[in-house]
Design a protein around this nucleic acid. Structure first.
Length: 274
DNA sequence: ATGGTAGCTGTGCTA
């Protein structure tokens, strides 16, 4: 079974490329991030015509996550237990005592069971800056996800946590670590929050099969980052113990970054035995 | 040199 994760940076703009990729790669399950649309705007019919079932969660033009599968798609969840929400004014000023406001959960996680695997499509908050409320939110979001992931692992579930993690785990996962000093994605708390999935018993499958340094999954649109190969490795698949033993390979479809109309991220592929 | 590019809607936000 072939699982893929891909931040497409707008599903409506990228639909032809995504459908061509599904045909070319013969992906069984595709976890999509940054659909940038509401549920009523998601082009579900096009995927269904290609033989895939669809689950999408989008609330606005921001974020948006989906899972499409041709090996079954059941038990859809649009947030994980304990997933924190975000609202800038609430985090900066605290909940409004008169309104008793709770920050709304964003469209950054969707889970579904596909071919016996519990697949999550995850779009981890960016963080924006080390002193930004969004950075605090990012760390809380990752910690809550790890707590849930640990519960799933202890239950013996076969879980794939796939997505755009917005963390650069190693200095060799970025074109120039010095360029990122003092920025998000490389700070020790972010790296610790990412590594905590390993401590919870999970295995990052792309690292296991693609250990070569300076292997990237994202290149900024600006300043000719792709021709200059100034990329980042930020898209990953953490597998629970029950799933990791079935892993048979991984690949990064770097060529998908080429040409006009590419997403700034490329598909990240994991193959399972059976 | 505080720029640059892309995608959503916008008189800007987010990445």
């Amino acid at each position: 079974m072939r699982l893929v994760t891909w931040n497409v940076n707008s599903i409506r703009t990228r639909l032809d490329r995504v459908l061509a990729f599904l045909d070319r790669s013969q992906a069984d399950v595709l976890a999509i991030q940054e659909t940038k649309c509401r549920d009523d705007q998601f082009p579900a019919a096009a995927f269904e015509a290609a033989g895939y079932e669809v689950a999408h969660f989008g609330l606005s033009q921001w974020n948006g996550v989906a899972i499409v599968s041709r090996v079954g798609l059941t038990d859809v969840a649009t947030q994980f237990p304990g997933q924190p929400g975000f609202a800038k004014t609430i985090i900066e000023d605290g909940p409004d005592p008169l309104l008793d406001v709770v920050p709304p959960v964003e469209a950054r996680a969707i889970g579904a069971t596909c071919g016996g695997v519990r697949v999550w499509s995850l779009y981890v908050p960016h963080g924006r800056g080390l002193g930004d409320p969004h950075y605090t939110y990012k760390l809380a979001w990752l910690e809550a996800l790890r707590t849930s992931a640990q519960d799933w692992a202890r239950a013996g579930d076969a879980v794939a946590l796939m997505g755009d993690w917005n963390v650069i785990p190693l200095d060799t996962d970025v074109y120039d670590a010095a360029d990122f000093a003092g920025k998000t994605h490389v700070s020790p708390p972010e790296r610790a929050a990412f590594d905590a999935f390993g401590e919870a018993g999970y295995t990052e499958l792309t690292r296991a099969f693609l250990p070569e340094e300076h292997t990237y999954t994202y290149w900024d649109y600006q300043q000719l980052a792709f021709p200059r190969n100034k990329g980042l490795r930020i898209d990953f698949c953490w597998a629970s113990p029950a799933l990791a033993g079935r892993a048979a390979g991984a690949a990064i479809d770097r060529d998908e970054r080429k040409g006009k109309g590419a997403s700034d991220h490329v598909p990240v592929i994991v193959d399972l035995a059976g």
